[in-house]
């Protein structure tokens, strides 16, 4: 009596389950292929960046920024925002303005002498760009500055983006 429905509905549950799981296994292998393609993409990006050169770009004149002041600029490309901070009389530091967490724009807090990401309260050291607090996983990429007379010139990124 209990198996009466099996005569009315001749569903082969075992075979059905087998086919479903085999299909799912194929999907897993396809996902594995996707992961491999992703690795190849990272490899291609790494190889393309190996020979990258950075332009020299005048960022600011030393006299135009007061101590604790900042200047925003774009480097190395027009879509890469950066921030230049005058830490002391003769010390300047420049970093990418994109937070390494979710790319929000960081700003300099003169009171705490730290770079702050307002989105998720991430804090970076203004001395070397290292992360001090919050969710950012990596330090801010630093802009390498060269001082020629009263001009500050950006000559590269560390690590190179």
């Amino acid at each position: 009596m209990s198996s009466l429905w099996k005569e009315d509905f001749s569903v082969q549950a075992g075979e059905d389950r087998y086919v479903q799981r085999r299909q799912f296994t194929k999907f897993l292998v396809l996902t594995s292929f996707g992961m491999f393609v992703g690795q190849c993409w990272i490899l291609a990006k790494s190889l393309l960046h190996r020979g990258r050169t950075f332009p020299s770009q005048v960022v600011a004149r030393t006299g135009e920024i007061p101590i604790g002041g900042v200047k925003l600029f774009r480097y190395p490309d027009p879509e890469d925002p950066c921030i230049l901070v005058r830490i002391s009389e003769d010390r300047f530091a420049a970093y990418s303005q994109k937070c390494t967490h979710l790319s929000c724009a960081v700003y300099y807090s003169a009171e705490s002498r730290r770079l702050v990401c307002p989105c998720h309260d991430g804090f970076f050291s203004v001395e070397d760009g290292s992360m001090l607090q919050g969710p950012p996983p990596r330090p801010l990429p630093a802009v390498i500055l060269d001082r020629r007379g009263d001009e500050l010139i950006a000559i590269g990124m560390e690590p190179a983006e």
């Binding site: 594995s32 992961m35 990272i42 690590p159 190179a160």
Partner: peptide, 18 residues
């Protein structure tokens, strides 16, 4: 993070896993 040397061995291992 700027460490680009791991990309090649990681791609090889990923190929082996695939």
């Amino acid at each position: 993070a700027g460490h680009r040397t791991v990309a090649l061995p990681a791609a090889i291992v990923s190929l082996l896993l695939f």
